[in-house]
Write a protein that binds this DNA or RNA. Structure first.
Lengths: 227, 227
DNA sequence: AGAAATTTGTTCGTATGTATA
DNA sequence: TTATACATACGAACAAATTTC
């Protein structure tokens, strides 16, 4: 009759230590951690165990290790999350339709929240972006501004879950689904419709007109497979 | 004039190796990895570096290390993602309202997809769960069946992004936001209303009636702060 | 049941490359 | 340029848990 004894592994002490330090405000992004030797001595463990812990933290996006210089706090989860998402969905078999499906879901849900919470600065950014979008000469530029516009929309929702998911998703798309970025509107006709949709979406946001921006978004979805 | 030479760290070889093996189908969940010593020799690196890589993989949820036994493939991202979400939103300052907001967004978006894609088996599970829910005697049971019902809904949507996010979110709620689990319906009146909402949601799903299930969901949201 | 072999967990020592003053 | 501090990486050893014979 063996009781399942959950032995905590040594390297986790390091993870916990750093996390706690961050939580308590003792460590902030950019700060330098104690050297590995000091850390090892402090926690009463070996340097290898310290390193295993640091590798984990590095991979999570909490720590950045610089050869010869030291270990530093660097909070960039989005990259990490997108990497994880990428691997997850790579294994499960990426279905591009599902990816697009999820993207539009996020934007649809973000919209009403954005209408409620959008700030004057964000409104200005939205109008500026849609203006640049209309003036853009190359397809590259258009893609970039298009992307920015949609990111602004999600950003304005003010819901961190939505925002992080969206960032991770877009980063994921960039990395793993090149084909999506290549689907570009070809006909002049549909491009005009797309610009109209963009403008409607943007103006609706600025005017806090849910129906208007929503119909702009729906048209956007209709006129493009993905972008 | 030094060109920034991006030196790949040794431990990443292990991460790549395992990921590739999984991608190519050479390794599947449950399979045993080569021993650390063999891995080290195979890749021409030290065992310490192998271990650093394995720790990373373990923390991502790709590998499970068993003392004295070996390293095994175990694809359980949900736990990992919830842990990451937990830490992220812990740092950003968890706002319970935002969490709830995100949860209902997922369910709202999952609903129409579930209506389209739900399988007969899932329908049966839904009806069984709602039946158990109505027969349940204790608050504990009700919470459990309630949770199952909503998970079935999201599951039936067939969108892995939604599913993983939902699982991670619920796991996150369990771990970090105890207060939410404690918000239990007290009055008999509202409990009846809640049961009605549940039944409507379930029947709508089974009958593929979007409006019915949607109104059930909306009522559910209305009658409970979170659960 | 028990002993031996296997495998991971952990530590120490050492050498090397890199950054910084 | 030199010296120091630091991360990177390797190898060997022993402990602890598991498997095998």
């Amino acid at each position: 009759m063996m009781e399942r004894q959950e032995m905590p592994k040594t390297y986790k002490q390091v993870v916990r230590f750093v996390k706690d330090q961050i939580r308590d405000g003792a460590l902030s992004p950019g700060d330098k951690l104690p050297t590995e030797r000091v850390l090892a001595e402090t926690l009463g463990i070996s340097r290898n165990s310290v390193r295993e812990g640091l590798r984990v933290l590095e991979n999570i996006g909490v720590v950045s290790s610089m050869h010869g210089s030291g270990n530093f706090i660097s909070l960039n989860f989005d990259e990490t999350m997108s990497e994880m998402l990428g691997f997850m969905y790579f294994l499960k078999g990426v279905n591009e339709d599902k990816v697009a499906e999820f993207r539009w879901m996020i934007e649809r849900e973000a919209l009403p929240l954005a209408i409620l919470r959008i700030t004057p600065e964000e409104k200005q950014a939205v109008m500026h972006t849609v203006h640049c979008l209309e003036e853009a000469q190359t397809e590259e530029e258009r893609l970039e501004y298009d992307r920015t516009l949609h990111e602004l929309l999600v950003q304005a929702s003010g819901n961190d879950f939505l925002i992080s998911n969206y960032k991770a998703l877009m980063s994921f798309i960039d990395r793993y689904i090149q084909s999506m970025r290549k689907r570009i509107i070809e006909g002049m006709e549909s491009r005009n419709m797309l610009e109209l949709a963009h403008r409607k979406l943007a103006e609706g946001l600025v005017e806090c007109d849910l129906d208007k921006s929503r119909s702009g978004l729906e048209e956007h979805i209709g006129y493009t497979a993905m972008f």
